Lab assay of single mutants.
Amino acid sequence: HNGKLCKLKGIAPLQLGKCNITGWLLGNPECDSLLPARSWSYIVETPNSENGACYPGDLIDYEELREQLSSVSSLERFEIFPKESSWPNHTFNGVTVSCSHRGKSSFYRNLLWLTKKGDSYPKLTNSYVNNKGKEVLVLWGVHHPSSSDEQQSLYSNGNAYVSVASSNYNRRFTPEIAARPKVRDQHGRMNYYWTLLEPGDTIIFEATGNLIAPWYAFALSRGFESGIITSNASMHECNTKCQTPQGAINSNLPFQNIHPVTIGECPKYVRSTKLRMVTGLRNIPSIQYRGLFGAIAGFIEGGWTGMIDGWYGYHHQNEQGSGYAADQKSTQNAINGITNKVNSVIEKMNTQFTAVGKEFNNLEKRMENLNKKVDDGFLDIWTYNAELLVLLENERTLDFHDLNVKNLYEKVKSQLKNNAKEIGNGCFEFYHKCDNECMESVRNGTYDYPKYSEESKLNREKIDGVKLESMGVYQILAIYSTVASSLVLLVSLGAISFWMCSNGSLQCRICI
């Protein structure tokens, strides 16, 4: 991952900044910058967002509201009850120091605090018919004063009620008058409520006091790749198909172990950190130390980045220098085999997901714990399936590479015959000098055995068991695999060879 928040398929997220979902939807004055928000790819909250409900109280069923919003990608904020005409018999300019803005008392931008007009609070009834052709999110509140005197001074009615009804919602609220500790300079409380109004449905408000009335509502448009994440990451000019709280993932790998919460087309989250597919040879310690064997393909974004291909070729060293050249036929066979294998694994496992966190309130801790156990169970199954699949494929890959290298080895052996000696570690020792032209003939299969047989015969008789390297004779190393990324691999195959001279070296080696 890149540690950044990015656009998702070209669409920017909605960053709530210092506000949370509650503050944004109710219209906390400190969240005025969010009022123009219309569309987004996903919503970003920060872990310690401080601006929620400015007048103390709870947004009821907040967790369910977050779940609903996680599939919303755009909205239209509109005046559901026009301020100047909807409440002619009531005062609608209630403000509070708890919702101060720029040093002055204020109130929510989407709600109206209705109080008595003169000395009376006549029963009010108002309704709205949803003609938007889509779901409408309606929010309101109920004020709970701290004393009967406060109730009387604001609403005149000691036994007030609030009723809200639609086809799918029907509740009646009565204020709970009680002494409470002071929070944000208030002994009173406000509880906030919401409902989704279906197209064509009607919502009716009736009250004799204590109503925090809707002013603006939201017509919602769903987008199934949307979601809500909690993150401290910063926004950058970048684009992605998959976003996590820790950063964007741009990967076609089937798995990731970065974060379980994802938005967009994302690899499946697994616990494993070692889900690797081999593309090189079986481990040979001396070669492995030099980083030549054991190439791997990573299938977990965050564990290993991208696929690494092994390729086969020849390396030689003689009086004229040293050089490398790919054996294109065996390399292409290996590439085709690995590509098919990788595609097979991805096809089997690479279903892209959006995974969002589930919200539970403080009273639902047991449910949250149960949900976590269920999620953990599914996660263990996914991890096991992934590891088992790759384990089985790896064994076949190792066998496949062994065969490829063996074929190259036999190709060289059949040409050199007794003009060189096998020394048991995949290397041959020449009994004759071999210049670049000679080396090329070994690589392309045109090695002239009779041409060098007499010199080889004489050297075999002279050496008589002495280690060949100390006599200045020449080696050919018969097994060799270097490691390159897919891009470098293609470039390498396009070149005939490249040279690395070893000044004054008397050794001649050709490596497979």
Results as ranks from 00 to 15, higher is better:
A478T: 13
L489I: 12
N340A: 03
V356D: 06
V473N: 11
E237N: 14
N459H: 09
K411F: 02
S234P: 14
T273R: 14
R366K: 12
N336I: 09
V261K: 10
S344Y: 01
V412M: 11
Y269E: 04
L477A: 09
I249Y: 12
S492A: 14
T383C: 09
C508T: 05
S414K: 15
N369M: 12
L392K: 06
T240I: 03
I479F: 09
F360I: 05
S251A: 15
T262S: 11
I423E: 02
L398D: 01
Y431C: 08
L292K: 00
I512L: 15
K417H: 10
H432F: 07
F293G: 05
L408C: 06
F360H: 07
I381H: 03
I258F: 01
S505A: 09
N336Y: 05
M349S: 02
Y384C: 10
A386S: 09
N232Q: 12
Q256G: 02
L416F: 10
C501W: 11
I284G: 07
C438W: 12
K417L: 11
K241W: 00
D435W: 06
V473M: 13
V442N: 05
L253V: 05
S231R: 02
A295M: 15
G465M: 14
D399H: 08
I296S: 02
T383E: 13
C508S: 01
V374P: 02
L392I: 14
C501H: 01
N459L: 11
K348T: 12
I308D: 01
G472M: 04
K421M: 15
C501M: 11
E237S: 13
W304L: 07
N283Y: 06
S251Y: 11
K406M: 12
R290M: 08
R460N: 05
Y449R: 10
G264V: 03
E395L: 06
R290Q: 03
W382I: 12
K413Y: 10
G247T: 07
N318A: 04
N407M: 11
C508H: 03
F400E: 06
Q246N: 08
K348F: 02
I510T: 01
D448A: 12
G298P: 07
Q415R: 12
D375A: 08
N503A: 01
N343F: 03
C438N: 08
V345I: 12
E440N: 09
N419I: 06
G504F: 03
M367K: 09
F400I: 11
V356N: 06
A478Q: 07
L398F: 08
N369R: 06
N333I: 14
T262E: 01
S330N: 09
S414M: 10
S231A: 13
A334Y: 07
A355C: 12
S456W: 01
C238T: 05
D402H: 07
L363S: 02
N425I: 12
H236Q: 11
G357N: 07
V483W: 06
K411L: 04
S485C: 10
A478F: 03
Y384H: 10
L506N: 01
L487A: 14
T305Q: 04
L370F: 11
L389F: 14
K467S: 12
M471Y: 11
L490E: 00
L458Q: 07
R282I: 07
N350Y: 09
R443A: 10
F255A: 09
G472Q: 07
N362V: 13
E440S: 13
E359I: 14
G323L: 07
I284R: 13
V270I: 15
Y289S: 06
R282S: 08
L477T: 13
N436F: 10
V345T: 02
E437P: 12
E461G: 12
S272Y: 10
G310S: 08
L392C: 03
I296L: 13
N418Q: 14
T446F: 06
N385A: 06
M439Y: 02
E429W: 10
M349G: 01
D375T: 15
R509T: 13
M349L: 15
A484W: 01
N362D: 12
Q317V: 15
E469W: 14
M277Q: 05
S231Y: 04
V466G: 02
K462N: 15
V345F: 14
M367N: 05
G445R: 12
Q288T: 13
W499S: 00
N336A: 14
C434E: 13
V390M: 12
V374F: 08
Y269K: 03
A326P: 04
E437Q: 04
H236E: 14
F378P: 05
R282Q: 05
R276N: 05
I346E: 02
L458H: 09
G313Q: 11
K241R: 15
E410I: 07
G298C: 07
I300P: 02
L416W: 11
S231L: 02
R366G: 14
E440Y: 10
Y324P: 01
A495R: 03
D402M: 10
L477E: 10
V488Q: 02
M235Q: 04
Y480V: 15
N232V: 15
N369T: 15
A233Y: 06
W382V: 06
E368R: 08
I463H: 04
Y384Q: 06
N239R: 04
Q288N: 12
T383A: 06
L487K: 00
I263E: 02
G323K: 06
E265L: 09
I258K: 02
I300H: 03
C434M: 06
G306N: 04
E410A: 09
E387S: 14
A325M: 09
V466P: 04
S322R: 05
Q352R: 15
S330A: 15
C508P: 00
I338H: 03
E454G: 13
E395N: 03
L370N: 06
L389A: 14
Q352G: 15
Q256C: 05
E454D: 08
I249A: 10
K365H: 09
I496F: 11
G357D: 13
L416E: 03
I496K: 00
L408I: 15
S481R: 02
V442A: 06
S502M: 13
R443K: 15
A478H: 09
G426S: 03
E454M: 03
V374G: 03
V345A: 05
Y447N: 08
S456Y: 03
C266T: 01
G472K: 06
E410S: 13
C508K: 02
K348R: 13
S234Q: 10
D464A: 08
R396S: 02
I258L: 10
G445N: 10
E422R: 05
L389K: 01
T339V: 03
C266A: 11
V473Y: 14
S481F: 07
L489D: 00
N333M: 09
D375N: 14
V491E: 01
H259P: 00
N404F: 03
Y314I: 04
T279G: 01
V342C: 02
T240H: 07
E437A: 14
H259L: 00
M277R: 09
N394P: 03
V488E: 02
I346F: 05
G294L: 12
Y384W: 10
S322V: 11
K417A: 13
D327C: 06
F400Q: 08
W311C: 12
S505R: 04
M367S: 02
P260K: 13
H259T: 13
K457E: 13
C242Y: 11
L389M: 07
P285H: 15
Q256T: 07
D376V: 04
E347P: 01
T262D: 00
N340V: 11
R290I: 02
R396F: 04
N418C: 06
K341P: 00
Y324L: 06
N459S: 13
I496W: 02
K462D: 11
L487Q: 06
Y480S: 08
N340E: 05
D380Y: 07
M500K: 07
H316V: 14
N418G: 12
E319Q: 04
Y312W: 09
L490G: 11
I476G: 12
E422K: 05
K348Y: 01
N340M: 14
G445W: 06
E301N: 07
Q243T: 04
V466T: 11
T383R: 12
Q243I: 08
S486V: 10
C242T: 06
Y312M: 10
G264Y: 05
T383V: 03
I287P: 05
G426A: 03
E237Q: 13
F428D: 08
I479A: 12
G303P: 06
I510V: 14
